[in-house]
Design a protein around this nucleic acid. Structure first.
Length: 637
DNA sequence: ACCCCATGTGACC
DNA sequence: TGGTCACCCTGGGG
């Protein structure tokens, strides 16, 4: 069991902080727009990896770029490092830790999953050190040179190295190394160094030498009263209360249904207003379906973009609805009243009746889970029910009609299995697909009527690593997509999966890094939007046979780090051409893209001062909610 | 397998 | 006011 006690053990609190290289700001420049500059000087080889995004097979193929540096602009300090590195590369040593200081050298023959980000950082740093006069813009340009096809040396040119023949690239590399070595020898650095050391020897003091004084060893100071836990008189202080350990704090709620009682409104204060909330959700959920309005034609994209641009955060457009970081959001689909819900890190679910003044300004906080709420959805066909999956290993259903949180599904409590996502297999919410992780990714079919702790349900091992999201096809529920930390997105046919053996996907797309989300487009399911840690949002085209292909890749900073919920780009629920995703950009904003990768709009507001990691559109109205890292919801309408 | 690192926000002095 | 601290199963690299 991974306890909290040692979770932070590794953080060296006393150690001085080593200054870290700042990560490069996300490039807002189009790679194509910059002209390519050719450098003419004889210089040092710099190799860069670049994960291509053109086709699947190209992924993880190291793309090698030869950059030449101007020796005239090298500082003396740099030269030392360069020499060391060059000697290193000549004698065949990999120059491991020198890398950060300047030139890096990697083994070209072994494709490595080295962080492109770190690489670009290093490359960047190197540029700064070497050519201080080079402006920021030009650096950007250089980083992008790696992307330009003209700079690539193809894999097949490298591939003949095994037979002893030197490739053109390898020859050029050796030639450059030799030329550089000559160049440095011609500078006579070794000689200068010798001269300098002789000079300092001459300057040594003559005559009487300084007396050597032994350092006085001081007695150890007695431990402070505070450390010895004594008061100023020396009387022992009372024992500290036993620390609360993770096991207690994050213990799963007792199995079975329990009442929906808001925990933020005191003992009795919440009773009436909570009842009002339940009643209004129940009535809202029942009415709209009875009056089937004519299918309103969705406006074209240009018109809808105007609608998106008109969205704003009103004066009361935000509220704190959970105690901690929001991990999932949902909006009730009723067109007449906005009820926004958020699940947080501690397993709390906050429901916010946006226009209500009841209790805490219409906010009701429930505690159905004990660990992060990974997914939150109102059942499509029955929106009195709010389903939630959690890292505590359970799926629950908040039934606003009965005022009860039901337990739909629970994993083996000792198995250390957590529910990472779910989706509905039937619109009434009776049948669900739940992704569960226990180092490997497992997806289970859950029937809430059986409630049998997994024994009667079927489940399938699908990924070697965690599954982050499952999403069922909007028209053919036997198909679903998964996004996984094994960096693939895979399409599956539920009918052909087997419980014991290794399963075969219909098709899969390998991403540059782990995938945090993959969703079918809501109407036809002919597209899939994916979010990956390789800083791309991709739009995959799904053809009739179920084959998926990358149609567009949008550069997007997806490095949310540890304290923010990872981004998951998702579709507008009524449109095949609008995607919403959080953003790290400052001032903070929410990004809206179309399916061609164009930025339609950025939602900004003075009050939106934090990253909005998880966002959801209203199903029937033009309303968008975003949740941040401190439990605040922002409602744009 | 371990360890280390980056990342953002609010609460606390 | 600014600096420090807590966040607790993230994803990556060494």
């Amino acid at each position: 069991m991974l306890g909290t006690a040692n979770f932070y053990k590794s953080t060296p609190k006393i150690m001085p902080k080593i200054p870290q290289t700042k990560r490069a700001p996300s490039a807002a420049v189009s790679p194509v727009s910059k002209k390519r500059r050719v450098r003419q000087n004889v210089g040092v080889l710099v190799e860069r990896n670049h994960d291509g995004l053109q086709s699947n097979s190209k992924l993880w193929t190291p793309q090698v770029v030869v950059t030449k540096l101007s020796p005239m602009s090298l500082s003396m300090g740099m030269m030392g490092d360069l020499c060391t590195d060059m000697i290193g590369s000549i004698s065949g040593e990999a120059s491991g830790k020198k890398v950060a200081h300047g030139i890096k050298h990697e083994n070209v023959l072994q494709p490595q999953r080295t962080s492109a980000r770190i690489k670009s950082t290093n490359v960047r740093k190197e540029e700064v050190e070497i050519k201080e006069e080079v402006k920021e813009e030009e650096e950007e340009e250089e980083a992008e040179e790696a992307v330009l096809p003209g700079n690539r040396i193809r894999d097949d040119e490298d591939s003949d190295e095994s037979d002893g023949e030197m490739s053109a690239y390898e020859k050029k590399r050796l030639q450059n190394i030799q030329e550089n070595a000559k160049f440095f020898a011609s500078l006579g650095i070794a000689k200068t160094k010798e001269n300098m050391s002789q000079k300092s020897a001459k300057n040594a003091t003559k005559g009487l030498k300084r007396e050597f004084k032994e350092k006085e060893v001081l007695p150890r100071r007695p431990l402070s009263l505070r450390i010895r836990r004594m008061d100023p008189e020396g009387v022992a202080l009372p024992e500290l209360p036993e620390p609360v350990y993770a096991e207690d704090l994050y213990a799963r709620k007792p199995s079975g249904p329990f009442d929906m009682e808001p925990i933020n409104l005191g003992e009795d204060g919440g009773e009436n207003s909570a009842l009002r909330l339940f009643k209004s959700i129940t009535s809202l959920s029942k009415s709209p379906n009875k009056s089937p309005k004519k299918e309103v034609q969705e406006p074209d994209l240009a018109t809808f973009t105007k609608t998106l641009q008109s969205l704003s955060l009103g004066p009361g457009g935000f509220a704190k609805v959970t105690k901690k970081r929001i991990s999932s959001v949902a909006i009730h689909p009723s067109p007449s009243k906005i009820i926004a819900c958020a699940g947080d890190k501690t397993g709390g679910i906050g429901a916010w009746d946006v226009d209500s003044q009841d209790g805490d300004d219409g906010v009701y906080l429930f505690q159905p889970h004990s660990r992060p709420v990974s997914c939150l959805q109102f059942a499509h066909g029955n929106p009195t029910k709010l389903y939630s999956s959690s890292y505590d290993g359970t799926v629950r259903c908040g039934d606003f009609e009965r005022g009860i949180f039901d337990e739909i599904h629970a994993t083996d409590i000792d198995g250390d299995v957590y529910c990472s996502y779910f989706d509905f297999l039937s619109p009434d919410g009776v049948k669900l697909l739940v992704s569960q992780n226990a180092r490997r990714g497992y997806v289970q079919v859950v029937d809430s009527r059986l409630r049998s702790n997994g024994s009667n349900m079927c489940g399938f091992w699908l990924h070697d690593r965690n599954v982050k999201t499952v999403h069922v096809h909007p028209t053919k529920p036997e198909y679903f997509v998964t996004g996984s930390t094994d960096s693939t997105v895979a399409l599956w046919d539920l009918r052909s999966l087997k419980e014991r053996s290794k399963n075969q996907y219909i098709s899969s797309v390998t991403h540059g890094r782990s995938v945090s989300g993959a969703y079918f487009s809501p109407i036809t399911g002919s597209k899939v939007v994916t979010t990956s840690y390789d800083d791309r949002i991709r739009i995959l085209q799904v053809d009739e046979s179920g084959n998926m292909e990358v149609q567009k890749a949008i550069r997007h900073d997806n490095h949310t780090g540890r304290w923010l919920t990872t981004f998951r780009a998702n579709w507008h629920p009524r449109r095949e051409d609008v995607i919403v995703v959080g953003s790290m950009e400052k001032p903070r904003r929410i990004h809206l893209f179309d399916d061609q990768g164009h930025l339609l709009h950025s939602l900004l507001d003075e009050e939106l001062a934090s990253v909005s990691s998880v966002n959801a559109f209203h199903r029937t109205r033009d309303v968008l909610v975003g949740g941040n890292a401190s439990g605040r919801l922002h409602v744009f309408m």
